[in-house]
Design a binder for these strands. Structure first.
Lengths: 184, 184
DNA sequence: GGCTACATGTAAGCGGTTACATGATTTA
DNA sequence: TAAATCATGTAACCGCTTACATGTAGCC
């Protein structure tokens, strides 16, 4: 049932990697929609190996440092495909601390509510800028079936999402400012 | 550090409630951005009570059924305010199984990729429709400082988010269909 | 009388985070 | 030679889910 195994199998389906390299992939490439640290990854790799979904060969770098380079097996590829073909129900809840705060913000002064909205807006604009910079690295839309095509779709989704959140936050700020101005 | 306590304190700041009623709030009112079941709520209420953040009085309904109606204390209100005033960093990762699948979808046939995108689109459209129905219940924008105003802002955000996700998914489908058509 | 909703708890297990623990290699 | 990075593991703890467990009240 655990999803981490599919994330690992998926990454290994793109490229053979060590546990260390996998953990870097989690914090750099796919951190927007999944993450894991080495303390989860190493035990999971052991489990996947025990069940025959991955295998590894040991490389020696330098004189004695052992590296386990993992690759996905045919059995692992079947498990990955099985999961990919299974339709996913969108979860009813996406936990979001900021939204929770906003929901209870009637306890706050109007200035403070605007302050917290502005703070979120700044952070979202920063993230949007970062994603737009990532998009610049693509000089054209990658052709289908390449791994880069999926990257592009996900990046596009991220940009659209951040843009909308920024619009929403701005609209919230505007609505909060309308009130006091009218009464003055 | 646990956020559940703030969710409970926030709900109790709106209205005195029993643990049972709280659990219903989680599954009906705020389920979009937080959730919890009674097996988490009851122990948490006990902890909050032990620390003086909430208190309760026992009501008897019928002849013998005991209900503990909880209310937030002054100390609890201070803790809630402290949290509300603390700026929240947006988390780097929002786990999303569908995006993870899409990221590895180069292993899939083009038809299957479109199928999974279409499936998500259907689900998102359904949710959007539901949120739009909720919005109809507001015949006007509630005035600031009322609890309903926050409800409205959150609902607006949900609608904007779902609309954008639908647009994104549609765009993904279009881009996946462009390729094959060209080659035919 | 039977079903659904009301009402309150505990326990086992899982996924995930943080900290503990060790050692080699590379680079400044 | 000291620091950063590479590399692999384990352990304790926490939040959350699922299941266990019990009993009352209201409705058909």
């Amino acid at each position: 049932m655990g999803k981490l195994q599919y994330a690992i199998l998926g990454l290994l389906s793109r490229k053979d990697m060590t546990g260390y390299e996998l953990s870097k992939e989690f914090t750099t490439t796919i951190f927007e929609f999944w993450n894991a640290t080495h303390s989860q990854i190493y035990p999971e790799l052991k489990r996947l190996n025990d069940n025959g979904f991955v295998e590894y060969k040991i490389d020696i770098s330098g004189t004695s440092l052992e590296k386990k380079t993992y690759s996905i097996t045919e059995k692992g590829r079947l498990l990955l495909m099985e999961w990919l073909e299974k339709p996913v129900r969108i979860p009813p809840t996406q936990k979001d601390e900021f939204r929770l705060q906003l929901f209870f913000s009637h306890n706050l002064s109007p200035e403070y509510r605007i302050k917290m909205l502005q703070n979120q807006l700044n952070q979202r604009q920063e993230r949007l800028q970062h994603l737009l910079n990532c998009q610049k690295k693509f000089d054209a839309v990658p052709s289908e079936h390449t791994a880069a095509f999926s990257d592009y779709l996900l990046l596009m989704g991220g940009i659209m999402r951040e843009e909308t959140i920024c619009q929403w936050l701005q609209k919230c700020i505007d609505m909060c400012q309308e009130g006091p101005e009218k009464t003055q």
